[in-house]
Simulated scan of single mutants.
Amino acid sequence: MSMIVFDGVSKFHGNRAAVEDLSFTVPEGEICALVGPSGSGKSTTLRLVNRLIEPDSGRITLGRTDIASLEPVALRRRIGYVIQSIGLFPHWTVARNVATVPVLLGWPRDRIRARVEELLDLVGLDPAEFGGRHPHELSGGQQQRVGVARALAADPEVLLMDEPFGALDPVTRDEIQTELQRIQTATGKTIVIVTHDVDEAIRLADRIAILRDGRLVQIDRPAALLARPADDFVREFVGGPLAGLRMLRTRTVAERIEAGGDVAGGPVLHPDMPLDLALGAMVAARADRLAVADASGRKLGVVTLGGLVAR
């Protein structure tokens, strides 16, 4: 895996800066979300990393290598790329789509077959059931999973994702976000994701970079960004009236467990559940406390309404 470093990177379109003097680091093995208003330079920043466009000044390093020193094709073999429209080849099967890059790299057939099966399992699609299907036979969420599998096929150092879930319905979007978290935990990939959805960024990212008019305004961990916004723009963009609720998204039930006896009725919370979901469960159950148990059903204590909102 590799970290990505932007060092004074600028890109101009005529007299206008698409991005200007960008300097920040995406640490190895982390997810960094790029957010900001339309036209803030999010997608431009992403495309600079795999040299779909070239900077006018500054440099970007992948690991310890200046990407300008690499042939673009060689660079892109080190980077997976997922876009909103997915771009699966319609006349190829799912397995053939996932195998695109390994085939281009000349991998042996048995290695390709094993890799395709491994990746379809990783993204939650049974190879025996889905490998022989074509894209039109899949739901939007299933197509997006195939797109992620294809991007990971050659085991890239970095995964770039440009608003990959924007076209999905809310339920499917939630499922795929959960899947991405699981995949990142399993693979340890460095991921840069462009999103217009602040809640998605808070849920997925280790760090959030806020862009405005092509410039970096602030980069920080979600909780720090919400607690200490750099200026009024950041405060309104990531928080506003929802700042308190979004702050709950950055904490888990495990941090609020209290000693307590049995709780009659109501759902049982898992310690890894974000506090905003725990609050929603309390409201739905019309309860001021809910029991907490681990995956084996062992009771760990309770979470109270007062405990959720007091700190």
Rank of each mutant, 00 (worst) to 15 (best):
R228I: 11
R228V: 10
R228A: 13
R228S: 13
P229Y: 12
A230F: 10
A230T: 07
A230H: 09
A230G: 08
A230C: 10
D231V: 10
D231T: 07
D231K: 09
D232M: 05
D232P: 04
D232G: 03
F233A: 03
F233K: 05
F233P: 04
F233R: 05
F233L: 06
F233Q: 04
F233D: 03
F233Y: 06
V234R: 09
V234F: 11
V234S: 07
V234N: 07
R235Q: 09
R235P: 03
R235L: 06
R235A: 10
E236L: 09
E236P: 06
E236W: 11
F237L: 04
F237H: 02
F237K: 03
F237C: 01
F237R: 03
F237Q: 03
V238F: 13
V238E: 06
V238M: 10
V238A: 07
V238N: 05
V238H: 08
V238D: 04
V238R: 07
G239C: 01
G239I: 01
G239Y: 04
G239Q: 02
G240C: 01
G240R: 03
G240Y: 00
G240A: 00
G240D: 01
G240S: 01
G240W: 02
G240E: 02
P241K: 03
P241I: 03
P241T: 01
P241M: 02
L242M: 14
L242E: 12
L242S: 11
A243M: 09
A243C: 08
A243Q: 07
A243R: 13
G244A: 15
G244C: 10
G244M: 13
G244V: 12
G244H: 09
L245M: 14
L245D: 13
L245P: 10
L245Q: 13
R246P: 03
R246G: 00
R246D: 00
R246Q: 00
M247R: 11
M247A: 12
M247K: 07
M247F: 11
M247L: 15
L248P: 01
L248D: 00
L248K: 00
L248M: 00
R249F: 15
R249S: 15
R249K: 14
R249C: 12
T250I: 07
T250V: 08
R251C: 04
R251N: 01
R251V: 07
R251T: 06
T252Q: 14
T252D: 10
T252S: 15
T252L: 13
T252V: 13
V253Q: 03
V253W: 00
V253G: 06
V253H: 04
V253A: 05
A254W: 08
A254D: 15
A254N: 12
A254M: 10
A254H: 12
A254G: 10
A254L: 11
A254V: 08
E255N: 09
E255R: 12
E255G: 14
E255A: 15
E255S: 15
R256T: 14
R256V: 15
I257Q: 13
E258I: 06
A259Y: 05
A259I: 05
A259P: 12
A259S: 14
G260C: 06
G260A: 06
G260M: 05
G260N: 01
G261K: 01
G261Y: 02
D262N: 12
D262P: 15
D262Q: 14
V263G: 08
V263M: 13
V263I: 12
V263A: 11
V263D: 07
V263K: 07
V263Q: 06
A264D: 15
A264T: 15
A264C: 11
A264W: 12
A264M: 14
